[in-house]
Amino acid sequence: MTNGNDDLVRLIDLKKTYFSGPLAVPVLKGLNASIKRGTFVGIIGTSGSGKSTLLNILGMLDVPTSGHYLLEDIDVGSLTDSELAVIRNRKIGFIFQSFNLFPHLTVEQNIEVPMVYARVPAKERRERAVKLAQEVKLGHRLGHRPNQLSGGECQRVAVARALSNRPAFLLADEPTGNLDEKTSGEIMKLFHSLHDTGATIIMVTHNPALEAHFDQVIRLRDGQIEPNLPEVTR
């Protein structure tokens, strides 16, 4: 924003190739895309389209073979493992399909985990966790453990956890994949309300039915981005 560039994320000729022995398997074949701040982006693709690989690269769990991934104009490809961990911690809010909550921690403690790695003092952690829990309407469930919660509630805890370090964007991997239709609707509504307050959300899904929710759709097929049809973009 400071340099007048509204792009939060830029992908420039991004390629990822897996090598199994002498065999080179190209998975991402040169992606170019940009995501502006405050957009709700859907990355849609069937299995095998390379969307998981793209998710891992966007989440900085993996690095591209060639090309560039710029997050706030920082080239992620040049960072060390620890630096990547710090950026994951501060800039990205992960939301997983199967929630990935820690079963032995309470709702409050689960929300605190990213802040623990950010060295936030215990008192501030607790205050922020309580506030976030209230924001996702789980203020009354602070002391419960994940096995005492419904699937929708678990995913709301995960959303609160993802928000705890005030990340640059939320990265959701099929967040409604393990939920029934009604709960899915609630979670999507939660994402929309976050979006309305200005959050950038990148959601990876195989489900074309969710397309209508997104500001911007990146459609992956066979490792490449399909050109957008004009009527999809709102």
Binding site: G59, A85, V86, R88, N89, R90, F94, V113, Y117, A118
Partner: peptide, 16 residues
Amino acid sequence: RKEIGTRRALGAQKPD
């Protein structure tokens, strides 16, 4: 493993 992976995704460094 899943716990380790989740912690890493949430920002744990290798030394952590």
